[in-house]
Amino acid sequence: MEGRVGGETEGWLRYQYFLHYAEDSLMPLLVMSPVISRLKSTQVPFFVRPITAVVANRISAQFIFPNAQRHLGFIDGQLATSGGRYLCGDTLSAADILMSFPLIAAKDRWDDMGS
């Protein structure tokens, strides 16, 4: 049968992958962004804030933003090669719904991560 590896379809393998990807790869990055941005907030003492702001900006520029871009590119590529309208094919699955949570939650924060 075409598209099968060891009895599992490609859609099933994608399904298993994205169930874990959403929580284990994508969400930690999205949670890290607002946590790091707190280093620049007014709650940080005034005399320390310039140092913590530089650290926060470096972490965002060198780690968070490039990885967010990489993840978005990966997700776009997966959608393009899924063989359907969704991540796992032509049928909406729990993996699509689970992936929607971090993407919707971060939708308004993507611009804050960099350009």
Rank of each mutant, 00 (worst) to 15 (best):
M1L: 08
M1G: 06
G3Q: 06
G3W: 04
V5R: 02
G7R: 12
G7E: 03
E8W: 11
Y15V: 14
Y17H: 07
F18Q: 08
F18K: 09
H20I: 02
A22S: 06
E23P: 09
E23Y: 14
D24L: 06
D24V: 01
S25E: 11
S25Q: 09
M27S: 14
P28T: 05
L29D: 03
L30I: 03
V31L: 14
V31C: 11
M32N: 12
S33C: 06
S33V: 04
S33L: 08
I36W: 09
S37Q: 15
R38T: 06
R38D: 09
L39G: 09
K40H: 13
K40F: 15
S41G: 12
T42L: 15
Q43S: 14
R49P: 03
R49L: 13
I51P: 11
T52S: 11
T52V: 09
A53N: 06
A53V: 11
A56G: 05
N57Y: 11
N57E: 13
S60W: 06
F63D: 01
F63V: 00
I64S: 00
A68G: 07
Q69K: 07
R70T: 02
H71D: 01
F74K: 02
I75R: 10
G77T: 07
G77I: 05
Q78R: 14
Q78G: 10
Q78N: 15
T81S: 15
S82W: 04
G84D: 00
R85Y: 00
Y86Q: 03
Y86V: 05
Y86P: 02
L87S: 00
C88D: 00
C88L: 00
T91D: 03
S93E: 09
S93M: 14
S93Q: 10
A95W: 10
A95K: 10
A95V: 12
I97G: 09
M99A: 04
S100W: 07
P102W: 08
P102N: 01
A105G: 07
A105M: 12
A105V: 08
A105D: 03
A106C: 04
K107D: 01
K107H: 05
R109G: 13
M113C: 12
M113I: 03
S115Q: 04
